[in-house]
């Protein structure tokens, strides 16, 4: 494991519902790197992302991660009556940012994914594609050291995909989890296949 690694998975074993999904997962990502985790449906991509974020405990092995972490879930849920800017502002403040900086962070995150015009709209009034952009903006809020993106291209239009690619290229460390054949290989410096890990 390199000294400057931001994320490292050490002998990680994933288990859900009594079924072992993958074992002995090894991965290390340093600053400026992007990793890709491929896996078909049910292979454990979401379980892996939730384990990295700390929502689930690893069955075996360990995860080393930074304190500041952004997460874009595969199935984003939002307070639908909240306004986009107010929601991101609250999350930034929750993360410890002072009011002025939190406002700036919310502005920047919205602008990164072309959501400026929707800042005052309620989240419930956004289409699925725009909600996915907001999901990504939420992950990028406060420029975290590590980004865990679970199927980030879902519901994005070509412009959204372009903005995502641009954002990933500028991020400090990204882990993308996606099904095979959905792209992303061109952005990744290393790749982990969960289907192979489960067979072994």
């Amino acid at each position: 494991m390199p000294q400057d690694s931001i994320l490292s998975l050490n002998q990680l074993c994933l288990k859900r519902g009594g079924r072992v999904l993958a074992q002995d997962l090894e991965l290390s990502l340093g600053g400026g790197e992007a990793g890709l985790v491929l896996g078909s449906n049910g292979s454990g991509k979401t379980t892996l992302s939730e384990t990295i974020c700390g929502f689930l405990k690893p069955h075996a092995g360990s995860v080393t991660k930074p304190k500041q972490l952004g997460w874009a879930s595969q199935d984003p849920r939002f307070p639908l009556r909240s306004r986009c800017h107010n929601y991101l502002f609250q999350l930034a403040v929750l993360g410890g940012s002072p009011s002025k900086i939190a406002k700036l962070e919310a502005d920047t995150a919205l602008a990164r994914f072309g959501l400026d015009e929707y800042a005052k709209r309620t989240i419930g009034s956004l289409s699925r594609g725009w909600q996915q952009r907001l999901n990504l903006a939420r992950a990028w809020l406060g420029s975290p050291q590590l980004l865990v993106l679970d199927e980030p291209r879902t519901a994005l239009d070509p412009l959204g995909t372009e903005l995502l690619t641009h954002a990933i290229s500028g991020a400090s460390c990204v882990l993308i989890l996606a099904p095979p054949g959905t792209g992303g290989e061109e952005l990744a410096s290393c790749c982990l296949n969960l289907d192979e890990a489960s067979q072994s």
Binding site: W71, P76, R77, P79, L80, L91, L94, R138
Partner: peptide
């Protein structure tokens, strides 16, 4: 509503002590 709408995850990520919200 917040409990249902992924606030739990965001609180866990952004407020490790969990008292602010």
């Amino acid at each position: 509503h917040r409990g249902r709408e992924a606030w739990r995850f965001e609180e866990e990520l952004r407020d490790p002590r969990g008292f602010r919200m």
